[in-house]
């Protein structure tokens, strides 16, 4: 193991490492801690210039209550859910199929299609912006959640295919051959042999895409406007316009907007990291 485990070092080194850890963490998360403190402060602290001192009163319930009951925030949150969940389902479904096709079969153009998916995934969003917006308008889906979901599914399929294909390639191939010898139809091999083995990959992909889509801002601004269909990332900007300089409410709103992916991460940590670090180890 590198670096040398502290257990093998002197007592002094061990103790200083253990005390250094929390300090480093606080320093690292300082901007975030500041926002958390902001979100429980009362309004007067900001007008009096007491930005970073102790809160003069504890207003957690008050501030978050106003975010939930006196603003469009719940609506934006609901929109985010209704955009994110169908995207996750759609992408995982499509990518399981493309990953299966590219991972199991040898045919002309296999690598070419695979590379097309990877390359497309790296493309800057802006080169797609105007055509995708026009297409969405033409289909009558501008400013709808469906329009956003369709685009997200298409784009995320690139990344998800990369992941699924590599995962399927690492599965034991004799399993598929054995099923073929038994005369099992190919689509049944997919459904009953490969798919059950893909559960960890599906879980990893689902949490990752959930986070990516929840946090998307650019496409939300390009393809939607207003509280009927905008997700929370875009909503927070209009929320901020409404409560200009009301830092306690803006930070409470930001924390609410950030919470779902954070919860997802802590609940599904193992899968999340497995998905992100794909290929980091050979």
């Amino acid at each position: 193991m590198f670096p040398t485990p502290v257990q093998k070092s002197s007592r002094a080194v061990q103790i200083s490492y253990q005390t250094l850890l929390p300090f480093a963490l606080i320093l690292w998360l300082l901007p975030l801690i500041a926002v958390m403190i902001f979100s429980i402060k009362p309004d007067v602290d900001f007008t009096n210039g007491n930005y970073w001192g102790m809160p003069s009163s504890f207003e957690l319930f008050n501030n978050y209550g106003r975010v939930f009951f006196e603003s469009d925030m719940p609506r934006y949150l609901l929109n985010s859910v209704m955009i994110t969940v169908p995207t996750v389902i759609g992408t995982v479904a499509l990518a399981c199929m493309t990953g299966f096709a590219l991972g199991v079969y040898k045919f002309k153009g296999n690598l070419l299609i695979f590379f097309m998916f990877i390359a497309g995934n790296f493309v800057p969003f802006q080169i797609l912006m105007v055509p995708v917006r026009d297409l969405t308008v033409d289909m009558g889906l501008y400013n709808t959640k469906t329009g956003l979901v369709l685009f997200h599914i298409a784009f995320q399929t690139g990344f998800a295919t990369l992941f699924m294909r590599n995962f399927i390639r690492a599965l034991p191939f004799p399993l598929i051959e054995a099923a073929r010898v038994e005369g099992v139809a190919e689509w049944r091999i997919f459904l009953y042999v490969v798919l059950p083995l893909m559960k960890p990959a599906i879980a990893a992909m689902a949490v990752l895409i959930f986070t990516f889509i929840w946090n998307d801002y650019f496409w939300a601004v390009v393809l939607t406007q207003g509280p009927e269909s905008q997700p929370v990332t875009a909503g927070i900007t209009s929320f901020n316009a409404q409560y200009r300089a009301a830092y306690h409410l803006m930070s409470a709103g930001s924390i609410v907007a950030a919470l779902p992916p954070v919860a997802m991460f802590f609940l599904m940590q193992k899968h999340f990291i497995a998905g992100l670090t794909l290929g980091a180890v050979k």
Binding site: L94, T98, Y105, F107, I127, L135, F155
Partner: peptide, 27 residues
């Protein structure tokens, strides 16, 4: 064995083509 991969690829490739590949050309 020759057809199955194309059937499985069709929806994904179609989506990807409409929303990613074609827009690059259009831009």
């Amino acid at each position: 064995i020759a057809i199955t991969p194309w059937l499985f690829l069709a929806p994904g490739v179609l989506f990807f083509f409409i929303y990613v590949i074609a827009p690059i050309y259009q831009s």
